[in-house]
């Protein structure tokens, strides 16, 4: 570099611009993805009249896209990620118990879930697997708090939370709101991936130290990605709670987190197409197994996780990259 600069001193140095901003190609891709999602989730339930299947698929797509912000782009793996999802659902019940009505209960749910993410911000001082296990501890702490008989007045303990008769049950409306949240998450993913902000996140993923040397405010950048990630999960959780109307503290089971992580890694973390393809394939597989071979669900996912880590840690997009020899979308 230094040598070539000396050889032709008169030529103006090339202006290095970071690859930011949504160009025409990215906007076109985004349009295609949005159209495909719309087509799938509007036409899907007509072709295969099982709305819950498609709702579940959307809800987990949102979760995988949410996790992508913090694991895919920033490089931190929160193993207890679905604590925000669970709290998004339980928060509605807790809000109702506190005397909030309708939309206020939803706002309360999303607020406490995102607030939990803010409380957990100090976890970012930890190295990768400490961060993973610390978020897992947070998930289990919340699980046992919700399940505990001491807080039964607000959570109904292990008897489960029922929203029936307290908020209007409207699966159609929930379905379309969830679809809207999915589309917004997708637009956000595109925006973040091709923005300065996303570039900063990827710099942090590469090396926290050199990112800091480049003048990136680590605390704020990383914190924003984390809060965004948690906010998306709590929205998905609130919609899940509204759609199913009744749930147990089991919603804080770590396996949900593991599923989301598997979907993301299987597709390819840090890409846009990866989380979508990963979730569409594996969440469909999950729902199929869950209906017909329930006891083989975790057996299958355990094997998938091990094989992914041994042979395909960059996921389907990594394979595609090796095959196409260019960066996947």
């Amino acid at each position: 570099m230094a040598h070539s600069a000396r050889s032709d001193e008169k030529a103006a140095p090339p202006r290095l611009r970071p690859p930011v901003g949504l160009g025409r190609a990215q906007l076109r891709n985004m349009g295609i993805y949005l159209a495909l999602m719309l087509a799938l989730f509007l036409a899907g339930p007509v072709a295969y009249p099982n709305q819950f299947f498609f709702f579940y698929l959307m809800d987990f797509l949102i979760l995988t896209l949410g996790l992508n912000f913090i694991y895919g782009f920033t490089g931190y793996l929160p193993f207890g990620y679905t604590v925000f999802w669970g709290l998004g659902a339980y928060g509605i019940y807790i809000g109702l118990q506190l005397g909030l009505h309708g939309a206020l209960a939803f706002i309360f749910a999303i607020a406490i879930s995102t607030a939990l993410a803010a409380v957990l911000l100090p976890l970012f001082r930890l190295r990768s697997h400490y961060f993973a296990i610390a978020t897992l501890a947070a998930l289990m702490a919340v699980y046992y708090l919700v399940e505990s008989s001491a807080l039964e007045r607000w959570t109904n303990g292990d008897k489960g939370a029922s929203l029936a008769g307290r908020i209007p049950y409207d699966p159609m409306l929930t379905y379309y709101i969830t679809l809207a949240i999915l589309l917004i998450s997708l637009v956000l993913t595109f925006y973040v991936k091709y923005s300065r902000f996303g570039l900063a996140l990827r710099a942090i993923r590469g090396s926290v130290l050199s990112a800091e040397m480049d003048g990136i405010n680590i605390t704020i950048t990383r914190g924003l990605a984390w809060l965004l990630s948690a906010l998306i999960a709590s929205l998905a959780g609130a919609m899940y709670g509204w759609y199913v109307m009744f749930y147990y503290p089991d919603i804080f089971n770590v396996t949900y987190s593991v599923y989301v992580i598997t979907y993301l890694i299987f597709g390819g973390a840090g890409t846009v197409l990866g989380p979508i393809v990963g979730t569409l394939i594996l969440s469909s597989l999950y729902q199929f197994l869950d209906v017909y071979y329930t006891s083989y669900v975790n057996l299958t996912f355990g094997v998938i996780l091990i094989l992914l880590m041994l042979f395909m840690s960059k996921g389907l997009m990594g394979v595609l990259y090796r095959y196409l020899r260019r960066l996947p979308p």
Binding site: H129, V258, N298, L299, V303
Partner: peptide
């Protein structure tokens, strides 16, 4: 796993897979 790009987190995930596998094999 030792040779993978990020041994710390990749091993965490792989052992979680092993955990799921043992748990569900035991359930069966």
């Amino acid at each position: 796993l030792e040779k993978s790009s990020d041994p710390e987190i990749n091993s965490f995930i792989a052992f979680f897979g092993l955990s799921l596998f043992i748990e569900s094999a035991a359930t069966i």
